[in-house]
Amino acid sequence: MQKTILKQQYENFPASRSKGLDKTYDRFQKLISQLEIHGKVISQEDENLKLLRSLPSDRNNIALIMRKKSDLDTLSMDDLYNNLKVYESEIKGKSSSNSQNVGQASSLTYADDVMFSFFANQSNNPQWKLLQMPWLFKMG
């Protein structure tokens, strides 16, 4: 019975905008731990995706960038949380200058990852292949 209730809580896990990322992460970690105690093992990628999907709508851009990362299946929950904290502090503009420098470097990395992922995903798209053939569009 307890395992069923925990699975349901996991499936319907909401992040609360008012409680902030710290409390959301703590609640999620506790839920994952309780599931593991009851024998339910969830893959790292599923945990990460679930946490990202549960973020409030004002963090959709952050969640999208993070979901496009290729190492989401091996990225630990702590690392995901730390990356989210960097983005959160950048968005709020309340980070120290040192944190901003780390965050800006991090943002460039994630932005590069997103662009790379986009273009990599487009390589099998027939429309993208047409755009790579400029001779098709020559007039005259």
Score class of each variant (00 low, 15 high):
L55N: 03
L49M: 03
L84C: 10
M77R: 12
K85C: 08
G93D: 03
K69L: 12
D79H: 10
T24G: 02
D26W: 00
L31Y: 05
K50T: 12
N98Y: 10
S106F: 15
E90L: 15
S89V: 03
Q29V: 10
K69N: 10
A105Q: 14
H38E: 15
M115C: 10
S99L: 13
D26M: 05
V114T: 04
D26Q: 13
Q34Y: 03
F118W: 08
L51C: 02
E90W: 04
L55M: 15
N48V: 02
L130R: 14
P126I: 10
N125A: 07
I65M: 07
I91P: 02
D71K: 08
L84A: 02
G93Y: 07
S95I: 01
K68Y: 03
M115F: 04
S89W: 01
L55E: 10
Q104Y: 08
L49V: 11
R53Q: 12
A105W: 01
S43R: 08
L130S: 09
S106V: 01
S107M: 06
W128T: 14
S96A: 07
I91K: 12
R67T: 12
I65V: 07
A120R: 14
K129N: 11
L108M: 10
N83P: 00
S57G: 04
K68A: 13
V114M: 12
A111P: 00
N48Q: 05
K92G: 11
E90P: 00
N98E: 12
D78S: 13
S54E: 02
N83H: 08
S99F: 02
T74M: 09
L51F: 15
K85V: 05
D78M: 09
I91M: 11
D79E: 14
E88V: 01
Q122D: 03
W135G: 07
L84K: 00
V102H: 07
W135D: 13
D112Y: 11
E36L: 05
K94Q: 11
G103R: 02
I37E: 14
L35M: 10
L49P: 00
K23D: 09
Q100P: 00
L75H: 00
L80D: 06
L130T: 07
D26G: 06
D46Y: 01
F28Q: 04
N60L: 06
K68L: 14
Y25R: 00
Y110I: 02
W135H: 14
S97M: 11
M66G: 00
I42W: 04
E36F: 05
S76F: 08
K40I: 09
R59Y: 15
G103D: 04
S117K: 14
S123F: 06
Q44S: 13
G93L: 08
V102K: 07
N101C: 00
S99H: 02
I65E: 08
R53N: 15
S97N: 09
S43C: 07
S106A: 05
K92V: 04
M66P: 01
L52T: 00
R67S: 09
L49I: 14
L64E: 13
L108V: 09
S54T: 05
N48S: 11
L31W: 06
I32Q: 05
N124F: 05
I32K: 06
I65G: 04
Y81N: 12
L52K: 06
G39D: 10
L130C: 02
A111K: 10
M77L: 15
R53I: 03
Y87N: 09
D58N: 14
E88C: 01
Y25C: 05
T74D: 13
L84Q: 04
F119D: 06
G39L: 10
S96K: 11
